[in-house]
Write a protein that binds this DNA or RNA. Structure first.
Lengths: 223, 223
DNA sequence: TCCATAGTTCGGTGTGCAGCGTACCATTAT
DNA sequence: ATAATGGTACGCTGCACACCGAACTATGGA
């Protein structure tokens, strides 16, 4: 039963408004500085410093020090997955109706480093339907035509494959209850979507906002 | 940003040893009484009563009152999913090496109400390989031969389909990092496995222990 | 009817910990 | 040099809440 205290420890780290806010902010995949996180969470720098130290000791976040700045990021996709799972539970349990802000998050958002939400699920489904991806056991993998499509889209899939363990993998979406894509190729896809000017990300949110024209291009590309 | 307090609230409910122990105990899918949960968590009945009321108010558990007994169960598969995700994070972050108890859990255990662990993943993979299941978009579904196999195995798949929303669905396994099966058919499968005498469940653990012969039959059935 | 058991309510105690003020180091700018 | 900014260490205060003891209600059995 030694695993019980561990899960309690992890949950307790998340189970506090200030820390939960920080972690949620980091869900957008960017690395933020201690001061930024402090401002977001609405606490002083000292308090934030303490929280961040605890989160890091617990292995939930990691930091990169650059000069006098200390950038924090989520420590692994499994942390993001756990946070999304908790969001799913919280969302269905809360009586607060979905606001407008919630709507944009449902449509498209970052899940750590890849695209999630309605459009993320859409991309997943279409890439399977177009036979760019094919199921392989419990995972998925690129087909030959899928690899060509990635390269045509500007994603150097061969070099990506060597950099990170998983190229592409399904990831459960809390708002849709269906799968979207994660993995290094999914990271590249989101980067390219933004590079194309199809979408952009606000500074203070995980929401990915597609321009009308951008969404049209996106859907046509997958059409 | 109204979703932040919610996730913190849910996590805080889990983030306490007594409550985490109770929730973990309920992961085996059985409904337990307040006194049993109190004993498992190592607190008095009064304390447990308070915890259980909080968990219920938070929507994580639900109860069925039968006479003077009050049986508690997890309130939905998404709660189990979130708990598993937290276990995954906790497991990889903790320095404690996998003990013998851990080994049996890795081999086979209940995840809420269905089979998880090595053998659960094995069943998922084999049923796909045998073409009893086939991927359907992001989900999976039974093939004709799969349905026959289920009926032959003693699972009334047609009546199950009407009782619960999802018949069969992939569910991520924290120890294996791969998918096993959940859904009403998966519940039936585990029940039948136990009814066949292939495996049994200890009273105080989520572990499912297969008899040597039972495991052999299980593997042959899927062979 | 009386007793045993399951569970809850209430009041009180203790403690863990978030949050801040102050003071302090480290890095960059002037 | 001095100043400005990012981040940390320490001590303190206050509050939330876990936990228990005792008393209470409700169900079931003898």
């Amino acid at each position: 039963m030694d695993d019980i205290p561990n899960i309690a420890r992890v949950a307790a780290l998340i189970g506090y408004p200030a820390r939960a806010t920080m972690l949620s902010a980091l869900m957008d995949g960017r690395a933020l500085t201690a001061s930024e996180l402090a401002a977001l969470a609405g606490v002083t720098k000292q308090t934030a410093s303490g929280h961040l130290a605890k989160l890091e000791e617990g292995g939930l976040i990691a930091n990169v020090t650059q000069g006098r700045h200390k950038y924090f990021r989520l420590n692994g996709n499994d942390v993001a997955t756990a946070l999304e799972a908790l969001m799913g539970v919280a969302a269905t349990r809360s009586r607060t109706r979905t606001g407008p802000k919630d709507q944009t998050l449902r449509k498209a958002r970052r899940c750590y480093d890849h695209l999630a939400g309605e459009l993320g699920v859409f991309m997943h489904d279409r890439m399977l339907a177009k036979a760019w991806l094919t199921p392989k056991g419990e995972d998925i993998e690129f087909t030959v035509s899928g690899k060509s499509a990635m390269i045509a889209f500007g994603i150097d899939i061969t070099s990506l494959a060597t950099r990170r363990p998983t190229l592409v993998k399904p990831c459960l979406d809390w708002s849709m209850r269906r799968y979207h894509l994660c993995g290094s190729a999914a990271v590249g896809l989101l980067e390219q979507i933004i590079a194309n000017g199809w979408a952009s990300q606000q500074n203070d949110s995980r929401a990915i906002t597609f321009t009308p024209k951008g969404e049209q291009c996106f859907r046509e590309w997958l059409g």
